[in-house]
Design a binder for these strands. Sequence first.
DNA 1: ATACGTGCAAAGTGTTTGCTTATCT
DNA 2: AGATAAGCAAACACTTTGCACGTAT
Lengths: 131, 131
Amino acid sequence: MAIQRLTRQRKAVLEVVKQAHNHPDAAWVYQEVRKIVPNISLGTVYRTLDTLVEEGHLIPLTRAGEATRYDANTDGHLHMICEQCGEIIDLDTQIPDVLSEVRSRFPHLEIKSASLEYHGLCEHCRGHLES
Amino acid sequence: MAIQRLTRQRKAVLEVVKQAHNHPDAAWVYQEVRKIVPNISLGTVYRTLDTLVEEGHLIPLTRAGEATRYDANTDGHLHMICEQCGEIIDLDTQIPDVLSEVRSRFPHLEIKSASLEYHGLCEHCRGHLES
DNA sequence: ATACGTGCAAAGTGTTTGCTTATCT
DNA sequence: AGATAAGCAAACACTTTGCACGTAT
């Protein structure tokens, strides 16, 4: 399901997420997109984000109980979530091979992919917690 | 924050999750616990599950958009989610070391832990999809 | 006795959806 | 022209919370 029509709204949503450096959620995108398309609706933002995810332009990041956030960097990389400030930090590194061992160990399952993320403190919060 | 009082409700909730073999969510626990404590409220189930998680008796499993499910098996193990039927399969295996490499690569971050889960097809669904 | 827990219902949050109107191609 | 998208508001699913009453210790 590709984007069939490149409307003002869709251009704006994609633009906003691409420019963003904070892995924004739908509410943040909505707020920002309204500066470009003032009467866009939140429903459209959600629908557009879904479409962009389906097409592979965005990666959705889901966190327990919190709103889904979106990453316009679709190159293979990992994330660390700062447990203090909630920021999501991109880790530009190879994704470790966590599949082959598990696959050979559980041959009756068809393991297609793995998801991996890290938790800890970002540089800023780490410094602030020093006593 | 330990359980301060061991009420009927708390006993029942813990019992139900321990007996369950399906990584149940709050609604399922609620439905089952009502067979033991018929007038327990859903709010109490949520509150009790939270408490049990805080105490380390349960591990919460969160999935994009779906209800949080709970695992009474707190030994270190991994999960695979079947993308067909949604079942969560326990993988009793060592958790691969995904920390040391990333830690040495990003020394300015304090990486405390990682979360890792697998996606694919369980034995049953795999068979059913054969053409 | 008294702090802590429960039941109930209402409120919250994030997200989806039905429907009519507008718009891209 | 005709299919697809947008706007709006209502509905949704899951979870949390305020408050008065109940109960374990």
